[in-house]
Nucleic acid binder design. Structure first.
Length: 844
RNA sequence: GGGUAGGUGGCGGAAUUGGCAUACGCGUACGGCUUAGGACCGUAUCCGAAAGGUUGAGGGUUCGAGUCCCUCCCUACCCACCA
């Protein structure tokens, strides 16, 4: 037998024998003791009679969830709180068949953190609400054949019932529902503020159109050419729409990323989405016999140094330059056909990476390279994106893969021209250095029913007046009114613009909103001049509802403002935000933008809404993604019914680190249930003989505290199991204090059962109001540890040693060990490497 | 194509950040308890008879590498013709 092997086996054998000798069958665990406990302790919490052998989770969960709400255990004093801590989780949209396990995963993860902080002495605000406006809820209502207004009420009841069951410490006094007029009044107020401050404009542009949802979509809602909501292929449609000027904040949105404490992957996703690139604008002249004068066309390039290698110029099908040079094009019908085809192609097809390049030459037109006067052909091709840069690109096949592919497809020449110093060449051709962002403005209008009506009114009279206004006249109008002649915002006192009940709420698909068929809605008076005017009939994007909800929560109930100034100052920005990474470029980006805009308007004094954000991982099942079609969706209700909310919470948190997600397997529920049952039987049978704090408690408190702070709940739970294993091994050494400490450590994970046990062992106040245990650093230092002894880097023995053992002491101990001696033999010790409280390595 | 996170027992996953690889749990085997058990309790469980070997593959740095460096392979997620 090798010494290493022997060592390992010996250690285990020794442990085993200790167990065998000392562990009397946990005879203290049993019914009789439990019965006694009830008699001796006058615990009023448990119903008269006996403590059940098994944890009666159904009764306990019902009892405590009602008790918590009644006693307002989780309601911080909004105005007087001394240590406010805003713990936020992304609110769900209540459209699906009830709460999804993904929701519950996020909520539990967030709630554990909230409970932990509350226990640390913070006044935790942990609100919840429903993001119930929007296409997803509306589509669900249509599927069910119910009116969205009714469906919302049904879903609300159902969701809130479920949310009471999951064991979260929600501040129920602060819930919001985005479809409640009390809420969307302020969403409209926000829209109005954005308009008045010149951040809203109306523009006709090729926009994303979802043929199934029958509405336009923002760029962020198009995922790989498909609708974020329904997965249909998105096409382009030329429509007049409302936009929010998020691009104005592109530099700040990018710059601030470095100062916020967010999950790295989300920060990177935002950086990429904003997509800053430095380059130059260089002017090419378009010439041709049919043109009365040369037409200037700017190209944007990040590689001006390759200018001498230009062999062609490419124009996007949507580019205005095409129209400008139309007279010079001799093959216009052919070009026009290409443009038409390109515009009507589904986005997914246009973006497909394996697609060959297509295009048509603009015959009769040439572009002049300002660097060398060379005339090069001009093409139109859909590989040039219209919304980025200028929509015109210089083709340098020698230095750009895409240009090369295009040149090869059409037999265009490739010139291996030398590179020229950048800044210099830009100056020489009178170009200018510039910064471009990939980010586009936020398309905010939707041709749907289930959303807050956009609070704008169009008046023909005013349109003429605004256009004609000059000098002082102009000062009568807001920035929004000047930018959008004829449009003005509904006065604040007239908000909300109520969404009327419309029987036929289904989208028409024509690009007109369902509200456009309701004259009583759109016929109104101009807020400026009082003449007959027409309301906007589009509603705003759902993401506007969620872009500011965190501002509302602390101020819920305030009838005078969207958010109270003092309250907001006290509670915001959000201290900890937890949610899905899928919102990296949607909700999270919009919220940041809205916050920045509100700051610039003077409503708030911070420009980042979420100080700390963590993205939770994805829960899969049996190694596969969950989906309704596969029929492998975990329904939390069923598990709560069968195992209890605590068991489900623990299981979800145990299967992997919160930020990484995990694989949900039913088998795991068994293990967790076993653990909880052992906690139950140990605690209810406990008769309290221990005198000193058990040694494993300090290590446990330290580990669990650190792990929770880092959201490593899985290892925190593992440590709780280690402590319980210690308890059941030596029940006679466990003190009452140990047991209480253990229950408090477990309480964020299993709030119901720990509350029940807390009262059974004789406590009156809620366990969730108890202070978090503190470990004794000194005691931790005094513990012994396993000193690893290596000879020439190979582990030869582990010796029990006191913490703080010096190198000399360790060496003596090592030399005293037979196995170590055998390996050193007669050789001379050349070097000793010693790491305190860990290892000694003897080199011979 | 770009980015990010990963690859560790039969499985989910640990590893104090360079110091006992496989904590904790599941599963499995054997034993106990039981009228019975898919309940509960106990013991064992990376491979190997042993020396020894083992963290996707190969190399390097180091007294010492799952962890750091280099080359390569694979998986998941996100973005993707952005000039």
């Amino acid at each position: 037998m090798s010494s290493q092997k022997m060592n390992k086996k010996t250690v285990k054998a020794v442990r085993g024998s200790i167990k065998d000798k000392n562990v009397k069958k946990p005879s203290s665990i049993g019914r009789s003791t439990a019965e006694k406990l009830v008699i001796t302790k006058k615990s009023g919490a448990i119903k008269k009679g006996k403590i059940p052998k098994e944890y009666p989770f159904k009764q306990a969960e019902k009892k405590w969830s009602e008790y918590w709400v009644r006693k307002k255990i989780y309601e911080p004093d909004i105005t007087k709180a001394k240590n406010p801590f805003y713990n936020l989780m992304m609110f769900p949209y209540p459209s699906a068949e009830g709460l999804h396990v993904g929701n519950m995963y996020a909520f539990t993860g967030s709630d554990i953190y909230g409970r932990f902080m509350r226990s640390q002495g913070y006044d935790v605000l942990e609100p919840i609400g429903l993001d119930g406006f929007g296409i997803h809820s509306e589509n669900y209502a249509m599927k069910k054949g119910v009116h969205p207004m009714r469906q919302a009420k049904v879903a609300e009841k159902n969701f809130y019932k479920q949310l009471h069951m999951v064991g979260n410490g929600f501040s129920w006094d602060h819930h919001v529902e985005t479809y409640d007029p009390e809420y969307y009044k302020w969403t409209q107020w926000l829209f109005r503020a954005m308009f008045e401050n010149g951040l809203v404009y109306r523009k006709k542009a090729p926009v994303n159109w979802c043929p199934s949802c029958k509405t336009v979509l923002a760029d962020e809602q198009v995922i790989a050419g498909k609708c974020e909501r329904c997965d249909s292929e998105v096409s382009k449609k030329e429509l007049e729409q409302w936009f929010f000027k998020i691009t104005k904040y592109a530099p700040k949105l990018l710059k601030n990323i470095d100062k916020i404490d967010w999950s790295e992957r989300v920060k990177i996703a935002q950086k990429n989405w904003i997509g800053r690139s430095e380059g130059a604008l260089i002017s090419f002249e378009m010439v041709g016999g049919g043109l009365s004068a040369p037409v200037k066309a700017d190209v944007f390039t990040t590689r001006p140094d390759t200018l001498m290698g230009v062999t062609f110029v490419v124009v996007a099908p949507e580019s205005a330059t095409l129209i400008a040079v139309k007279d010079g094009i001799t093959n216009w019908p052919e070009v026009e056909e290409y443009i038409w085809k390109a515009k009507n192609k589904p986005e997914a097809e246009r973006m497909a990476d394996d697609k060959d390049k297509t295009g048509v030459e603009l015959k009769g037109v040439k572009a002049v390279n300002p660097a060398n006067g060379m005339e090069v052909p001009v093409w139109v091709s859909d590989y040039v994106v219209s919304g980025y840069g200028t929509g015109v690109v210089m083709g340098v096949p020698a230095y750009d893969e895409r240009d090369l592919a295009f040149a090869q497809a059409f037999g265009l020449s490739v010139i291996q021209a030398p590179l020229v110093p950048k800044e210099k060449i830009v100056k020489a051709v009178s170009g200018k250095m510039t910064t471009q962002y990939r980010l586009r403005d936020w398309l905010i209008s939707r041709q749907r029913y289930w959303g807050p009506p956009i609070p704008l009114i169009y008046c023909e009279h005013c349109a003429e007046k605004v256009k004609a206004a000059k000098g002082k006249e102009k000062q009568k109008y807001s920035a929004g009114e000047i930018q959008n002649p004829g449009w003005s915002a509904v006065k604040e006192k007239d908000l909300p613009v109520m969404l009327p009940f419309v029987k036929n709420f289904k989208p028409a698909g024509t690009g007109d909103s369902p509200l456009s068929s309701v004259p009583s809605f759109y016929n109104t008076k101009c807020p400026k001049c009082g003449n007959k005017a027409r309301r906007e009939t589009d509603v705003s994007d759902t993401f506007l509802d969620s872009s500011w909800y965190f501002l509302r929560y602390p101020s819920v109930g305030n009838k005078k403002a969207a958010f109270d100034k003092k309250t907001t100052k006290k509670w915001l920005p959000v201290d900890m935000y937890l949610g899905g990474a899928e919102h990296s470029v949607l909700h999270l980006l919009y919220s940041r933008f809205v916050t920045m805009a509100l700051k610039d308007m003077g409503y708030i004094d911070f420009d980042e809404p979420f100080t700390k954000f963590r993205a939770h991982g994805l829960i899969i099942r049996d190694g596969k993604k969950m989906s309704k079609s596969k029929g492998n969706v975990v329904n939390p209700d069923e598990y709560i019914k069968k195992f209890g909310a605590d068991a489900l919470r623990l299981h979800l948190m145990f299967i992997g680190p919160l930020e990484e997600g995990g694989d949900f397997r039913d088998a795991g529920m068994v293990g967790i249930t076993r653990f909880l049952n052992r906690v139950w039987s140990f605690s209810t049978a406990y008769s309290g003989k221990g005198k000193t704090i058990s040694s494993w408690m300090h290590k446990g408190i330290k580990k669990i505290t650190e792990d929770i702070a880092l959201l490593k709940y899985n290892t925190a739970i593992a440590e709780l199991m280690v402590i319980l294993n210690g308890f059941t091994e030596k029940p006679e050494e466990v003190t009452k204090k140990d047991l209480e400490t253990f229950l408090i450590l477990l309480s964020p994970f299993a709030p119901f059962m720990t509350e029940e046990l807390w009262s059974i062992i004789g406590n009156k106040a809620s366990i969730h109001k108890q202070a978090w245990p503190i470990f004794d650093k000194k005691a931790l230092k005094q513990e012994s540890f396993d000193l690893v002894v290596q000879v020439n880097g190979r582990m030869r023995a582990t010796l029990k040693a006191k913490k703080g053992t010096t190198e000399a002491e360790a060496l003596e101990m090592a030399k005293g060990d037979e196995r170590v001696r055998n390996h050193i033999g007669s050789a001379e010790i050349r070097r000793v490497i010693f790491v305190e409280n860990r290892i000694i390595n003897i080199i011979v």
